[in-house]
């Protein structure tokens, strides 16, 4: 299973179409929209995992911290037409998501084939999480109060 990090559940039409075709080419043909406003694909075989993650990244999305003991996909008000504040809240959700995304370079190394600095000279630092991350997942939603 692969889940995407998609703050506020906002994607472009072309991103949607690429996820849709990815579900056919690398998954089991289903594309789920989760209760936390993101895409989730099932039935990806191990040999297809890396290409799938790379395609998501080429479409300018990623799968960092969509699972695990970290802050999960940041949600925000899903109905833009009800609030002119949506733009501002969405921007805030994106910043929040970026701020709380793990800093480890393991993701880029494992999934995107980024080179390891010689002799593992560079050691990762997680300024917010530390080496053990969180004891459990953590979830944030940004709400817009009704006027």
């Amino acid at each position: 299973m692969m889940r995407v990090r998609l703050p506020g559940g906002v994607c472009t039409t072309s991103q949607w179409l690429r996820m849709d075709s990815l579900a056919d080419s690398h998954g089991n043909g289903t594309l789920k929209l989760t209760t936390r406003q993101t895409f989730q694909m099932h039935g990806i075989l191990k040999r297809n995992l890396k290409p799938a993650v790379q395609e998501v990244n080429r479409a300018l999305m990623d799968t960092i911290a969509a699972c695990g003991d970290v802050n999960r996909n940041v949600m925000c008000n899903p109905i833009p037409h009800q609030s002119e504040l949506h733009g501002a809240v969405y921007e805030f959700a994106k910043r929040l998501s970026a701020h709380l995304t793990p800093h480890t370079s393991a993701y880029h190394e494992i999934w995107l084939d980024k080179q390891v600095v010689g002799g593992n000279a560079v050691v990762d630092v997680e300024p917010i999480y530390g080496p053990t991350y969180l004891p459990r997942k953590f979830k944030i939603a940004v709400a817009v109060p009704p006027r």
């Binding site: 075989l45 191990k46 040999r47 995992l49 890396k50 695990g68 003991d69 793990p102 480890t104 370079s105 393991a106 993701y107 190394e109 494992i110 990762d124 997680e126 080496p131 053990t132 991350y133 004891p135």
Partner: peptide
């Protein structure tokens, strides 16, 4: 879990090795 995470070198573990192992799907 804490030990697994601490010893994983920032969530690396042996994931890359596991992905490269085509003899099993798991």
């Amino acid at each position: 879990d804490d030990v697994i995470k601490r010893e994983s070198n920032y969530l690396r573990g042996t994931i890359a090795k596991g992905l490269a192992d085509t003899s099993t799907g798991s």
